[in-house]
Amino acid sequence: MALFGSHANLLGESPLWDAVRAWLWWVDIRRNQVLAADSGGVLQREWTFDRPVGAIGLAEDGLVAAFADGFALIDGAGGIHWLASPAIGAGAIRFNDGKVDRQGRFLSGTMQHGGQAPALATLWRLDHGGRAVRLVRGLRLTNAICFSPCGGLLYFADSLERVIRRHAYDRATGAIGPREDFFDCAAHDLAPDGATVDGEGRLWVAMVLSGQIACISPEGDLVALVDLPLPYPSCPAFGGRDMATLYVTTIRDSGHRLKSDLADAGRMLAISGLEARGIPETRFVPDNHIRN
């Protein structure tokens, strides 16, 4: 386990391995930034926008992004091309976590600052062509969005509820089935943030409050807890030449409850030797073509 690069984020999130460039992309939500570094941790991109970026995915020419208030493409020069601005609600609500599904659609959910009642956050799907479809209502802090290797299962969590949910996911349409409670984080005194899936279908989940990464089997059993040397891990992603390195973003100052004065807080970690390999990211397809 080692520090990756020298950059320290305030609120690092949404790491994403680009195998074509051999770069790791991620966002710093509080600084309104999208960043990329090569395999040695040297920064290659550092774009700053006029609003927060909650999550990103690879696109056929650049990135797809959930900005605070809508979906857009980011081209190779950092230019923004807006796709959809769905009605996510007024006040302290913004897009947060997100992932591209196995067929090239982008899912992202919103969050409420403070987690106030009633629960107004939502989960959305951005379809080919830029249409935004609301999938789930009644959330407070959407996180841990990821898909099974075949793409037929969707996982996500409301972090304040501390339960990872599972839904059947229609690969042709993007429709979801009824909720199943997959893993009770509260029963293990854990709080989920971002997540990814390996080639065997195991979930690797950032447990933000305990400073750990949890490995959960496809059957919903806790396989391992990996202790980290930095506080507040926010999201993991597999990458590297053989997809066997787990990169983890962390938080220095979320702007709310999560804050650390540790010298390396906010740095990124690269973890090897986990005997797991990730799945290359699917790219968002901004047209009507669906990959079956």
Rank of each mutant, 00 (worst) to 15 (best):
F4M: 06
H7Y: 14
N9R: 02
S14Y: 05
D18H: 14
V27Q: 04
I29N: 06
R30E: 13
Q33S: 15
D38E: 10
V42G: 03
Q44A: 09
R45S: 09
W47H: 03
D50C: 04
A55P: 04
L58I: 09
L58E: 02
A59Y: 10
G70Y: 10
F71V: 11
I74Q: 02
G78D: 00
I80N: 01
L83T: 08
I88R: 10
A90N: 13
G91V: 00
R94K: 13
R94S: 13
N96S: 08
G98Y: 10
R102Q: 08
F106I: 06
F106A: 09
T110I: 06
Q116K: 12
Q116I: 06
A119N: 09
L123S: 05
G129F: 05
R131A: 14
L135F: 03
L141R: 13
F156T: 07
L160C: 06
E161W: 07
H167L: 05
A168Y: 00
D170G: 11
G174Q: 05
G177H: 06
E180P: 03
F183R: 09
H188E: 07
D189L: 04
A191Q: 09
A195D: 00
T196Q: 02
T196V: 02
G199S: 12
E200P: 01
G201A: 11
L203S: 04
W204Y: 12
A214E: 09
P218L: 14
E219K: 03
G220Q: 05
L222E: 12
L225V: 04
V226P: 15
V226E: 15
L230N: 06
C235F: 11
C235H: 13
G239T: 11
R241M: 09
R241G: 15
D242M: 02
D242V: 02
S260M: 06
G266E: 07
M268Q: 15
S272M: 03
T282M: 13
F284S: 07
N288Q: 14
N288F: 14
H289F: 06
H289C: 00
R291F: 10
